[in-house]
Design a protein around this nucleic acid. Structure first.
Lengths: 200, 200
DNA sequence: CTTGTAAATGGAGGATCCTCCGCTTAAAGT
DNA sequence: ACTTTAAGCGGAGGATCCTCCATTTACAAG
């Protein structure tokens, strides 16, 4: 017997959930979308505020769900990057994209804070995907002798999260880039094929 | 004529400000101090909520002011560290202390977010001190050939802020340590006296 | 000491967050 | 079709945040 997975949502619940996500996507992608009130989103979706909170217990949860697809796309881009670039550059480029999502879609910052801070639970889905993507990239780098082998992918994801949080203001995008360079050099330090010079 | 500095506070205003800081220190240093309501602090200080908000426009501003002294102590510790340790280890140790403040005094996280995110204004005092401290440490490292010369101190402060934000949970203190190691190796990469092996 | 005035006060009130629970309804069983 | 029941709904209401401005007060000038 197939172990009863989490039983499917009731039809009306599913419908409301979808409406909420639609409304949220609409709201968050507008300018200043980070300030939209949850009441407004619920109203726009035509459901009660209680329903919103049941489906998404915190603002972060709603934002995370809204951006889950985009996060997935970002993760899926790894193989493509690895085909067209040397592994360390692929990793560096991927990091840049990661941060770019933050500065363009403002609501995304909340999403990632939620994803990365998820000590153990509800958002681990996206977190797992991100960690997996980073694992793929670093492993390729290690195999090519361009990245040190003793780096934990989860640590790196956390770092990216931290950098992104600081770079939330588009003003600080350049600073974020420099920090990523630094981090990248930390990743190169001690790789098999170590070069003594920093930078690309 | 001496350029009229920001005119001194009126006597009653100064008194209220001090009371508020006392009350805040009391509140924030208690367990779970991060959740204290501002109304409670105002009441404890015996002033109206409006007064609190005039002196400290945001929660972060109050927290920052509360911890300003401790932040200053941290900054002042640099010379002591430089006397007893090689510059790169001094820097690494200082970074650790920086993060430690976060995990012990929980309210401090808010403070630092405020300090570091201060694009340009009200908290630049503490930010400037932190940057100065890091400058001292890195410069010593550069002179000793143990830190690369092309690192901007402000970038490093921002990085520390990012790491600290992610390490807010004491659970993640070890992860924070590993990230600092990585960052530190990034700083060593390309220093005059480059060693090919990572770590200390 | 009196007066003028700008600084400072404080709390009522509007906005938002989030919880809680009595009512509604999908859908499984008969 | 009818009953049953638990999943789902919604929004009133309590808590907190922050603003605004009529009133009070420090203190400088006369």
């Amino acid at each position: 017997m197939p172990p009863t997975g989490p039983r499917p949502l009731r039809a009306d619940a599913q419908r409301n959930r979808d409406r909420l996500l639609d409304a949220a996507a609409r709201a968050f992608s507008q300018a200043g979308g980070a300030e939209v009130t949850l009441d407004a989103i619920a109203k726009d979706a035509g459901v009660g505020i209680g329903t919103l909170y049941r489906h998404f217990p915190t603002r972060e949860a709603l934002v995370e769900a809204t951006y889950r697809k985009e996060l997935a796309r970002l993760c899926d881009a790894t193989s493509e990057l690895l085909e067209s670039l040397p592994p360390d550059e692929a990793l560096r480029t991927w990091m840049d994209r990661f941060v770019d999502y933050m500065t363009t879609k403002r609501g995304m910052a909340d999403a990632l804070r939620a994803v990365i801070a998820s000590g153990g639970n509800p958002f681990s889905e996206s977190k797992a995907r991100l960690t997996e993507a980073v694992t793929t990239l670093t492993r390729a780098g290690v195999d090519a002798g361009r990245v040190r082998p003793d780096v934990d992918a989860a640590d790196l994801v956390a770092s990216l999260g931290g950098v992104s949080l600081m770079a939330a203001e588009p003003t600080q995008r350049e600073q974020a880039g420099r920090i990523l360079d630094l981090l990248m050099d930390g990743l190169r330090y001690g790789a098999r094929g170590t070069a003594a010079e920093p930078g690309t």
